[in-house]
Design a protein around this nucleic acid. Structure first.
Lengths: 194, 194
DNA sequence: ATCATTTAATAAACTACTTCATTTTTATTG
DNA sequence: CAATAAAAATGAAGTAGTTTATTAAATGAT
């Protein structure tokens, strides 16, 4: 099981001893998914918090009209889970699907208590990454309110240039909160402008 | 200094000993603001994370066109801070202003390391409340994308009935991401419908 | 109480974005 | 490398929400 990228990531925040690392290795699970497979399905309880070793995921929500809304995209070194469902162990409103063949390292919910007890440093680690996540999510709310779709697209493109190559445009449109047709229009506007 | 509401709140998550409580009491500060005063101003670094003992706050962002966007409202037992600015100690994009005379208990950034060292349980406490905050913020993004303004208003009204009485309508409009005129229209539609 | 200021309501014209329908391009599979 | 499916582009018509302007109601200061 290749947990090295995860360890490297964690050690940006806290230092782990070799015992702690082996404890982690024993309690985490690695899982591979094929393109198209679901890590989580709407209505199920989110039983793991996952770190992406390789691949690409989308978290989305299907509303009452059958419309799909992309909440988050994920690539290597990102975390994916429905945190609300995970912490309360309640049914999720979201789906998480793999857009490429994907490998995840998973923290199982039922091991979290033990992990925190054995490695209290991880309490700090998770606090910090969740804080970052919250700050980023708040910024996204502002952008959705105060910027036009075109401005949001430009920011997205600049922030995650690598993602745009890897996933279809209609998903980016959904992430931006607009229709694929309108994103298409924006792109043609942008090419004309230069 | 009345920190009882804060202690009650914390003890929903973790138990504190009497020593820990006095340590906290010695390291937190209480501060009173008059209606209209600012807890944080755009461009300043957010130096405290605050718990509302009494009163009401709004966190908002003024965009390049001078338009005000309300990100969060806060009443008793809620937390207010720009978490991004707080954790990185970087200039904030937000303002936090008191809508009533308000009393806060403040966790100063420079004491956080010591507090976490002395009371590791608080690491867990803050992890948990930030997790909740993140889950709630994600739900808000979905709502903004998948619901109409009218639906969002109805949900807001049902979720926070007490807030609506306490703050002016144009701020609620801003929180919902719409103009005050349009909210007014929605309200008149709703009264006609019944 | 009264005057001034802030907040809310209403309405018409406007715009960012959606919906629906069609065509073109790109990717996938036998 | 066809053949088929999936994704992207284009355009016309429609709608949710904005802007601007005006009036009415509520709140606050003297």
């Amino acid at each position: 099981m290749n947990i090295q990228p995860l360890l490297t990531y964690i050690q940006n925040f806290v230092e782990l001893t070799s015992e702690e690392i082996s404890y982690l290795r024993a309690n985490l699970t690695s899982r591979k998914y094929l393109k198209g497979q679901f890590v989580l399905q709407q209505g199920d309880v989110c039983k793991t918090s996952s770190f992406i070793i390789k691949g690409c995921t989308k978290m989305f929500y299907v509303d009452d009209d059958g419309q799909e809304h992309v909440i988050m995209l994920g690539i290597e070194d990102w975390w994916v889970s429905d945190i609300g469902s995970f912490i309360n162990q309640t049914p999720s409103d979201f789906n998480i699907q793999c857009l490429e063949d994907t490998e995840l390292i998973q923290f199982p919910f039922e091991k979290m208590e033990d992990i925190y007890a054995k490695i209290p440093k991880l309490e700090r680690f998770f606090r910090k990454i969740v804080e970052r996540g919250l700050a980023a999510t708040q910024k996204r709310i502002i952008r959705n309110f105060s910027l036009t779709a075109k401005e949001r697209y430009i920011i997205f493109r600049n922030s995650y240039p690598s993602i745009e190559q890897r996933i279809p445009q209609y998903m980016i449109a959904s992430y931006l909160g607009i229709t694929k047709e309108f994103l298409s229009k924006i792109k043609s506007q942008l090419t004309q402008e230069r």
